[in-house]
Amino acid sequence: MSTSAATAAAPVAVKERPRLSGFMPIIALVALIAALTVADPDFLTQRSLTAVSRTAAPLILLAAGATIVVLCGGIDLSIAALASLSTVFLALWIPNLGGLATLAVIGVATLIGALQGTAHVLLRIPSFIVTLGGMSILSAVALVVSGAGTVRVVDDSTVKWLDLYVAGYVPMSFMVAVLVVALIALLLKVTPLQSWVSATGYAESAARLAGTPVDLVKIGAFAVSGACAGLAAVMLVSRQFSGGPTMADNLLLPAVAAIVVGGTAITGGHGSVWRSLAGALVVTLLRVGLPIVGVPSAYEQILYGAIIVVAVALTLDKSKVSIIK
């Protein structure tokens, strides 16, 4: 079938890229841990590692979900706003729905993601505009629904399990995040989805001609991104005992940074969710590590900005785009 022709081309392109770049996020991760251990010998203890992994969990989910969209060649800028809205929904629904609220929120987030994907595909609007508009709309809905205030969760027994520790050390949220990443990776691997996604990202017109259901793949990617944002929101609520209309908004930049630091090319096709997992850990370590080496946390934002620009420049597939807008 013609689909196999498109997929056969993909591995060649992957091989041509420097092998080293595949290990870059891991190397960066190890180097960072080593550097932080030198700076502060107390860093490499079970307690601080537990804290880091617990902090990283929602970021991992957000980054992993958006990675699928980036792999298709698009971008999802609405993840953080969607997560914020989801925290509000969850906090409002827990009293009535109890345990079902978690599922309901993830379902709604998936739907919102799919809706954005559909708008992107059907109306032929660039994904960053759809999701930029979506970000604005979702924030407005969150503000209106919550009355622009924090919604407290009085009885958090239904989401408390996410804030527990497996075997006393590993945070449950981190386990869940890794599990979700593994699940997405497995799903991509054992189904034709992997080749469909990368074909869409590498060469959309070719993929379309070869019979790949490009539109469905894109909508699916946005739906996965939405679902991950919903689950990240559940984690945030389980930790903060409340939902807020801007609670997750400051996770957008770190999530984008995590994706590009992981080495997923912003031009699409090249990358994986595992890379974003590593990227999210790198970003979290940087965030935690700045105060350890004595840099004020105000530099955090500057660091994110610099990371995004540099990492995109390094991972960009320059052969593919002759004109960069």
Binding site: I75, I266, I308, A313, I324
Partner: peptide, 13 residues
Amino acid sequence: KVPSFMATLGVSA
């Protein structure tokens, strides 16, 4: 050669 929406997102930060 960073696409402008990424470059400006970074510069904004």
